[in-house]
């Protein structure tokens, strides 16, 4: 945690500097008689961010923040496993949207989480995998008229049937 606190402050300081650089493209000055230029507001706020990270580092040196005194790991083995399995699953879900459609990706993610991670039975898993995406489809596309990604061409026959139902 101690090292993590300082590393995080360092990363955020670099982010602040980058934002200051990007803001400068729009002018950071104050034009007399008119007011601030376009980059004024984000530049000085980013400077505020940078100064804050300086104080965070100062607190680390002074040992006044709990993280600066802690020898615990940022992520233990359970935390790392959770991040990889759960976080990785969510990333996979989003990556699949443009391939198998939003509803297809929802179904695959539900199978992964319920069956692989949650170790639930096939009955519950099958019910959720069928009902939930269908429910989302009828709510968003039928009632709210909001379209979701349909994925690649091979999903077209399925969507043709579903659109026949709602239109």
């Amino acid at each position: 945690m101690r090292v993590g606190e300082l590393v995080t402050a360092g990363v955020l300081a670099l982010l602040s500097i980058y934002l200051m650089y990007k803001s400068s493209a729009n002018g950071i000055g104050f034009v007399a008689g008119t007011g601030p230029q376009g980059g004024f507001w984000p530049f000085w706020l980013s400077l505020g961010m940078l100064i804050s990270t300086g104080f965070i580092a100062l607190n680390w040196v002074r040992g006044t923040s709990p993280q600066s005194q802690s020898d615990e790991p940022v992520l233990d083995s359970y935390g790392l496993k959770t991040l990889l399995l759960v976080g990785g699953g969510i990333i996979g879900f989003v990556a699949l949207i443009d391939i198998v459609s939003m509803y297809g990706a929802v179904a695959i993610f539900m199978i992964y989480y319920l069956k692989v991670l949650g170790r639930h039975g096939w009955f519950l898993t099958s019910m959720m995998v069928v009902m939930f995406p269908l429910g989302l489809f009828f709510f968003f596309e039928g009632l709210m008229q909001i379209s979701m990604p349909t994925g690649m061409g091979f999903t077209e026959p399925v969507f043709n049937v579903l659109y026949e139902i709602i239109y």
Partner: peptide, 19 residues
């Protein structure tokens, strides 16, 4: 069970965000 609720929350976050 939380192992059922959690994926629902994740899905609703993504679907709601896209909507």
């Amino acid at each position: 069970p939380f192992t059922v609720l959690a994926p629902l929350i994740f899905v609703l976050s993504v679907v709601g965000g896209y909507a």
